[in-house]
Design a protein around this nucleic acid. Structure first.
Length: 153
DNA sequence: GCCAACGTTGGC
DNA sequence: GCCAACGTTGGC
């Protein structure tokens, strides 16, 4: 089983939005970066991912989601009215993928970015790298354990 | 294929 | 709002 971190601006889509969806499940659409897309396609059902809020007053990890459906074409790429519309994507060979995620756990106390930076086992995390803009990144088992043990303290 | 210009991201 | 970082675009 692989572990991930998925970033979203909470104004657009937050862990609270996910919690309000039927069955607390939703498509993770709008990824328009090739490397992030490749990570989406590498995900397996039941992989777990941290849900990270960015561009907000308190950036950080707000909970955990489970991958509920394997990557499939993101319909918004073909919708001219969508902000994610991509006129260059060929319906015969869709360029952009998405997965479905289901809420696994919402942290009572989120792990703030500020706190994340102080965890020694997490010093190599991609999210902490200056200028990193990837919205989907792999997380190691060691990083995962270190963070989950903080949550459960 | 190079690379400058431009747009976007995201913490602060 | 600022600014650094980085991906994408497009002229050559």
């Amino acid at each position: 089983m692989a572990l991930w971190l998925m970033k979203s601006e909470p104004d657009a889509f937050s862990i609270d939005h996910l919690a309000q969806r039927p069955r607390q499940q939703a498509p993770w659409d709008g990824v328009r970066n090739y490397q992030a897309r490749n990570y989406l396609r590498a995900m397996a059902v039941d992989d777990l991912a941290f849900f990270y809020h960015s561009s907000c007053p308190e950036p950080g990890i707000y909970g955990v989601v489970r991958i509920a459906r394997l990557a499939y074409p993101d319909p918004s790429q073909f919708d001219p009215k969508s902000e994610y519309f991509d006129p260059k994507s060929d319906p015969a060979e869709p360029r952009w993928s998405m997965v479905d995620v289901a809420l696994e756990r919402r942290f009572e106390r989120p792990i703030a970015l500020e706190a994340l930076k102080t965890v020694p086992q997490c010093s190599e995390m991609l999210i902490l790298r200056r200028g990193n803009r990837l919205s989907i990144t792999p997380v190691t088992a060691r990083e995962w354990r270190a963070l989950m043990s903080r949550v459960d303290e």
